[in-house]
């Protein structure tokens, strides 16, 4: 399976801290740990889904991987090379190999440039291709995302939402990256159009052996597309594992609540969601011990004192950071 493949990305205990100044007369400045000690790998040709609710730090983590924002980590390697440094201090070729796809394609495109120009522009910036070949390469990238010649001379406002997002993906692909970091790439699209982009990402992985880190709050989409899932809550990973197993048999209480909230595909499958009391706490003042414990139905005395680490449950490539889940897993040799 995919987890036995060589990893292209290894993140080891990554944290991202922001300084919040607040209102000076009310409170002093304080540190907000948006991401706290996250370790994650993405295999070559693997699609890893990163799910969690707003404010859990999934976008911060994605930005840190491409070198944007504050990063502290024990190690962060890409294809064996150390990438624990901000974007402006990364070698250009490394920047080329990790590309980012944003949520809102209209905001990510230049309204006053044609599609073909925008897809060719990264090649100019990275000085990768002789001038004569640049547009030919851009055309190939556009064909890779199933867009025809007729849209080359168009401007972003003339395209549909799905076409725009495919242009953004083509622009990332033209540099022949190894890893695509996609931050909510289908959330702004209509259902019938979403499917185009989801199918495309899967085809690209199959054809180009591309690795994808796919960030989304839409669990049905993640389940459909991803090989492996990492669930995040308040800056930490709470469960990691193969997609079907995590969705089919969630072990962390937060994952249980999250998966129960997926809207059903048929009214007969509708069931009441697991109710989580309260709301996600303030990341500037996270709860002690397990960050989920104040909302957890399974909590024990230990949970409020000791931070659970992400530990293997059995040998199926599954991990959970939960004292209770860990104990209820039969020991395997």
């Amino acid at each position: 399976m995919h987890e036995s493949r060589r990893s292209i990305l290894e993140v080891c205990e990554l944290s991202c801290r922001f300084r919040s100044r607040g209102l000076p007369f009310l409170s002093g400045s304080r540190d907000i740990g948006a991401v706290d000690g996250v370790s994650l790998t993405v295999g070559r040709g693997e699609i890893v889904g990163l799910v969690g609710e707003s404010g859990c730090g999934k976008s911060t983590l994605a930005k840190a991987i491409v070198g944007l924002g504050p990063i502290e980590a024990r190690a962060m390697r890409f294809d064996g090379t150390d990438i624990l440094r901000p974007l402006d201090r990364r070698p250009r070729d490394l920047i080329r190999r990790i590309q980012y796809v944003f949520q809102d394609p209209l905001g990510a495109l230049d309204p006053r440039r044609t599609v073909l120009y925008q897809v060719a522009e990264p090649l100019l910036i990275h000085r990768r291709t002789p001038d004569a070949e640049r547009f030919a390469r851009a055309r190939t990238a556009l064909r890779d995302v199933n867009l025809g010649e007729e849209i080359e001379a168009k401007y972003p406002h003339e395209l549909s939402g799905g076409q725009r997002q495919r242009v953004v993906i083509a622009r990332a692909l033209v540099l022949e990256p190894d890893l695509l970091v996609c931050d909510e790439p289908v959330s702004a699209l209509d259902v019938s159009i979403q499917a185009q982009v989801i199918n495309l990402l899967r085809d690209l992985r199959d054809r180009l052996d591309l690795s994808i880190l796919f960030i989304s709050h839409d669990l049905a989409v993640v389940r459909h597309l991803c090989d492996r899932i990492a669930v995040m809550y308040l800056g930490r990973l709470c469960e990691v594992g193969p997609a079907e197993q995590v969705f089919g048999d969630p072990r962390h209480p937060y994952t249980k609540a999250l998966t129960s909230a997926i809207p059903p595909s048929h009214p007969r499958l509708a069931k009441p969601p697991v109710r989580l009391p309260g709301e996600p706490p303030d990341p500037g003042d996270p709860p002690s011990g397990c960050r989920f414990h104040p909302r957890c139905g399974d909590r024990e005395a230990l949970c409020s004192r000791v931070v659970p680490t992400l530990e293997a449950l059995g040998d199926g490539g599954r991990f959970a950071a939960c004292h209770v889940a860990k104990r209820s897993t039969p020991a395997q040799c």
Binding site: A195, I198, N199, L225, S265, H266
Partner: peptide, 12 residues
């Protein structure tokens, strides 16, 4: 819409 068949191909 994804969800019905986890591994199947979506039909846009």
């Amino acid at each position: 819409r994804p969800g019905t068949a986890p591994a199947g191909r979506l039909m846009p």
